[in-house]
Design a protein around this nucleic acid. Structure first.
Lengths: 193, 193
DNA sequence: TCTGAAAGGCCATAGAT
DNA sequence: ATCTATGGCCTTTCAGA
């Protein structure tokens, strides 16, 4: 029930670069006071856009296991995705539009075959393993400025847009009418279920 | 020139889960005082193991572009890797042992072909594009406890090990002799270059 | 929703072990 | 390398607009 604007994206960008930067300093850069930045960060957390404050660890220096990229062909996509997400050595999970599951992990054992199979459990899947020499994570908030799309009509969402939380999920809208239409559609859907 | 032990890994794990947790609280959990934790965090930063403090943003809620996984076959691996690392829409870059480059990004344009080619610049490469439906980042420090390997002999590095910074790079060793051997080998290498 | 002042808490330093 | 104690900065709260 509040607006998500470019100022929020600027804050995200600055915090992604350095989450320990004082709010007063961030405020100076974007033309707000410290407390105002604090408020917005709280709201971004409540909306689920900031999932948490964390550290970026250089895993290559810890040299834990052999980094591998694995492609799975399976019929049990959801079950495997959930299982992999929980597994400690797994760092990234991708589900493709073709229904394949890809994941990046650090194999802890000499025998990769048994390691993969213990990771998969009883789910049936065929897989191919690719050794990785380098892996880098380079997140960026920049370039997203005008990238928000309306959940109802697909248009770009700008500073005039609205953000709403419906059933624990956050949606963005370009205008109040789209929000209304989405709400009633959603309600009809729920009633029929 | 200092020891890297399991306590450091515990701190990394706790900070990865919540980087805003007070040091005094972290200290209580692992049996140290606040300032002692502060000291170790400073050292982990100086050693380059903590790259920076950041936020984990739920990008799926920002809906910026179409997520794609792209495989490149190229002879200009280093040049492309560096170029991709700098590009805003690129979030992950993997270089495989076979010399392929994989990357995950959010394509901002309708025409993926021109978008990829502008990303690659003048480097020659053939590529295949896979659409991604879901992407998750699930980092974990747990499971790395005894995973440090000696840069000289490959053995496991435990609490008795040593860590040294040589030419802006951090290396771990299982014992002082391995550190010495590595140092002299490195020096000979430099002199011959 | 923002600003500005004030309170409380946290981090980092200093000095001793 | 770690502890306790302290000083100073940062975050958050609270009126007011």
């Amino acid at each position: 029930m509040r607006q998500l604007d470019e100022t929020d994206l600027e804050i995200l960008s600055l915090l992604a670069a350095d989450a320990r930067r004082p709010y007063s300093e961030i405020g100076e850069e974007i033309g707000l006071s410290g407390p105002a930045v604090s408020d917005r960060v709280t709201r971004l957390q409540e909306a689920g856009i900031i999932r948490n404050f964390t550290i970026d660890v250089d895993r290559s220096e810890l040299r834990a296991g052999v980094p591998v990229l694995i492609r799975l062909e399976t019929t049990a996509i959801d079950r495997l995705r959930d299982r992999l997400r929980e597994a400690d050595p797994v760092e990234h999970v991708f589900v493709t539009a073709e229904g394949e599951v890809w994941f990046y992990a650090r194999a802890e054992a000499r025998n990769v075959r048994t390691w993969v199979e213990s990771l998969l459990g009883e789910a049936e899947a065929t897989y191919t393993v690719t050794l990785v020499e380098e892996a880098e994570w380079t997140p960026s908030i920049d370039g997203l400025e005008f990238a928000l799309t309306c959940a109802e009509c697909g248009n770009t969402v700008d500073a005039e847009g609205e953000t709403a939380r419906i059933d624990e999920e956050v949606y963005h809208f370009c205008c109040p009418s789209c929000l209304d239409r989405f709400r009633s559609r959603y309600q009809r859907l729920e009633e029929s279920a």
